[in-house]
Amino acid sequence: MAITRYAALLRGINVGGHKKVPMARLRPLVEGLGLTDVRTYLQSGNVTFAADRGDEASLAREVADALAGEFGFPVDVLVREHTYLKAVRDACPFPAADLAGKQLHVTYFSEPVPVERFAAVDAAAFAPEDFRLGDRALYLYAPAGLGTSKLAVQLNRPALTKGLIATSRNWNTVVKLVEWTEGA
């Protein structure tokens, strides 16, 4: 089987002192699964690796099970291969090259989201903030950053994300994950 490069996106770790997953412990944990070329990015739960087996879903289960066993709490994990990460980056509907990384975010979803789910969100009411849906992703333009975004709060309501794993990354991280998963 060919070697494929992936990124695992861990949801809700190392936030406000909860669900601590030190990257120094995450790397050997992922390597212990037989995955290679393991790298972590920042403290926000991003790990890239190469695998010669499995698919996104089975690798996400493996990483999630290993995390639960090691740390004693569940962690939602999305695994995405390089081709998908690159397609998300390339399909950005906002002028990413003209924006600071903190102004643009991607929320990755565990499955495709019907447009109808977000139809009731009146983006114009939050201007200049804006959002667009993509392939298992939502792009958010928040010119003042995510921390003050009223649109981000609206988009993260439980009714809109029900039944999904959803985890967001700023544009700098989106780009770095594409770079780190290039080549196998």
Rank of each mutant, 00 (worst) to 15 (best):
T36P: 04
T36S: 07
T36M: 08
T36E: 12
T36R: 12
D37W: 05
D37Y: 10
V38Q: 07
V38I: 04
R39G: 06
R39Y: 07
Y41R: 09
Y41T: 09
Y41P: 06
L42N: 01
Q43I: 03
S44E: 02
S44Y: 01
G45N: 05
G45F: 03
G45P: 04
N46S: 03
N46H: 03
V47H: 00
V47D: 01
T48I: 07
T48V: 11
F49H: 02
F49S: 01
A50D: 07
A51H: 04
A51P: 01
D55S: 14
D55R: 13
D55H: 14
D55Q: 14
D55E: 14
E56R: 10
E56T: 08
S58W: 06
S58F: 08
S58T: 15
S58E: 14
L59N: 00
L59F: 00
L59S: 00
A60M: 05
R61I: 07
E62K: 00
V63Q: 06
V63Y: 09
V63G: 10
V63N: 08
A64F: 00
D65G: 11
D65L: 11
D65A: 14
L67Q: 01
A68W: 07
A68F: 07
G69L: 09
G69H: 08
G69T: 07
E70T: 09
F71A: 02
F73Q: 01
F73E: 02
F73L: 00
V79G: 02
R80V: 10
E81A: 14
E81H: 15
T83A: 15
K86Y: 10
V88E: 09
R89K: 13
D90H: 11
D90Y: 08
C92Y: 05
P93A: 03
P93E: 07
F94W: 06
P95F: 02
D98C: 11
D98A: 13
L99T: 04
L99I: 04
A100M: 05
K102F: 14
Q103I: 03
Q103Y: 04
Q103T: 11
L104F: 03
L104G: 01
L104W: 02
L104K: 00
S110A: 09
P112V: 02
V113R: 01
V113M: 04
R117P: 10
R117Y: 05
A119G: 12
A119R: 13
V121F: 05
V121S: 09
V121M: 08
D122N: 13
A123P: 02
A124P: 06
A125H: 12
A125R: 09
F126S: 03
A127R: 12
P128C: 10
P128W: 05
E129C: 03
D130S: 12
D130R: 10
D130I: 03
D130P: 04
F131W: 13
F131A: 15
F131M: 12
R132H: 15
L133D: 15
L133I: 15
G134D: 14
G134Q: 15
D135A: 14
D135P: 06
R136S: 14
R136Q: 15
R136K: 15
A137L: 00
L138R: 07
Y141A: 09
A142G: 06
A142R: 05
P143F: 05
G145P: 12
G145A: 11
L146G: 10
L146S: 13
L146Y: 13
G147V: 00
T148I: 10
T148C: 11
T148K: 14
S149Q: 01
L151C: 01
L151V: 02
V153G: 13
Q154P: 09
Q154E: 15
N156K: 12
N156H: 12
